Amino acid sequence: MNAPRLYLLGITSLDRASSLNHRQIEIFAAVMRAGTASKAADQLGITQPAASRALAEMERGLGFRLFDRIRQRLVPTPEAWRLYKSIEASYRGLDTIRAEAARIRDQGTGGLRVASLSLLGSTLVPRAIGRFRLKHPDISITFHVLLSRDVRDLVASGQFDVGLAADEIDLTGVTHQLFLSPQAMIAMPTGHPLAEKQTIRPTDLDGHAFIAYVPEDRARQRLDNIVADAGIKLNIAVETIYASTVCALVTEGVGIGLVSPYVVSTLDKSRVVLRPFEPAVEVKTLLILPPDKPKSLLVRDFITALMESR
């Protein structure tokens, strides 16, 4: 700890105040608390003469007496008590700083704000939050499930700390990395004619009612290119935004649809059959963060929880 500034003592010479060193202040404070130089020396693990020399050097540097020697006892002067109060206040301030540093280390800088696209909003992200809360049980989390473009806007503006969004978003104004790119599968109602096949290919889709994502969806665009190369056109019965909606419509027998493996756990296996699709259609999800903003301890720990939950 740096030696406290002694403005309150009315010292006009900063040179004298700056002659103090940490060891002198430590010994002086120990003597004030213990009452004698010998007890203070024992507490500090030094000899009594060494403590006395340090006090004498401190008095010379300050230019005023700290103790009167009465009957072989050190009696603090009024100036010593005033100085001691200043030192104790400095120690309390240092203790406060240490406590705050420990709190930041253990709890981070406050709450955590997370936004996710629907695809992962009821599966992977809740698992990650559970992992994160094991390490940070006292941290409050705001979690929103939104359209990918809204996730992007909240993160780009700095209102949210972490976002998961589909890869069709505008990437300007965010820091991003590929988070997931699983191969999509074809979901169909139980008893559907295609359920007899082990692998679904583009030509197999011809003529079957299809539940598609909206045209701006990148997975939809990849599928459109694949079926166009095969010389067929999808028989689109419904277009929707959410993977969960595709699954619900498939369950009700409306048609077949392309789904990510990350929604499989939400499906009623007694009413839905899943089959691989070839050639592969990747469903890419991006991890996005606010631009030019260092990651806090909380954000880093949450990203770790996300990675471990994949």
Rank of each mutant, 00 (worst) to 15 (best):
Ala102Asp: 12
Met58Tyr: 09
Ala230Gly: 12
Ile211Gly: 12
Arg69Val: 10
Leu287Val: 09
Asp42His: 04
Glu79Ala: 15
Ser18Glu: 12
Ile186Val: 15
Gly130Thr: 13
Glu100Gly: 08
Thr123Asn: 11
Ser244Val: 06
Ser181Leu: 08
Asp150Leu: 07
Pro78His: 00
Arg73Thr: 11
Thr199Pro: 02
Met307Asn: 13
Pro193His: 12
Leu286Val: 08
Ile169Val: 15
Arg69Asn: 12
Asp42Phe: 00
Ser265Leu: 06
Ala128Pro: 07
Asp268Leu: 06
Ser270Pro: 04
Ala30Asn: 02
Lys269Val: 01
Gly130Cys: 03
Leu119Val: 05
Leu66Glu: 07
Thr175Glu: 14
Leu112Gly: 08
Gln221Ser: 08
Thr175Met: 07
Ile186Met: 15
Thr203Glu: 09
Ala17Cys: 01
Tyr242Thr: 08
Gly93Val: 01
Leu286Trp: 09
Leu249Trp: 03
Val174Leu: 08
Leu223Glu: 11
Ala156Lys: 13
Arg275Asp: 05
Val299Met: 12
Glu252Thr: 03
Leu20Met: 10
Thr175Gln: 10
Leu120Cys: 04
Arg271Ile: 05
Arg271Leu: 12
Glu196Leu: 11
Asn225Gln: 12
Leu9Glu: 15
Arg133Phe: 01
Ile97Pro: 05
Ser13Met: 03
Ala128Trp: 11
Pro4Gln: 01
Ala305Arg: 03
Ser296Leu: 00
Val114Ile: 15
Pro279Lys: 04
Ile87Val: 14
Arg300Trp: 01
Arg16Leu: 01
Arg222Lys: 09
Met1Arg: 13
Ser116Cys: 14
Gly45Asn: 07
Met32Leu: 09
Asp301Ile: 02
Val155Ala: 04
Gln72Cys: 11
Ala248Lys: 09
His192Asn: 13
Ala99Gly: 15
Leu62Glu: 04
Gly207Trp: 01
Ile87Met: 07
Pro189Glu: 10
Met188Glu: 03
Ile232Phe: 11
Phe179Arg: 04
Thr142Glu: 15
Ser270Val: 05
Thr285Lys: 08
Ala101Glu: 15
Ala219Leu: 00
Leu154Met: 14
Val75Met: 12
His208Arg: 08
Ser309Ile: 01
Thr172Arg: 15
Pro78Leu: 01
Glu308Ile: 00
Ile303Asp: 12
His144Val: 08
Arg60Gln: 13
Ala228Arg: 14
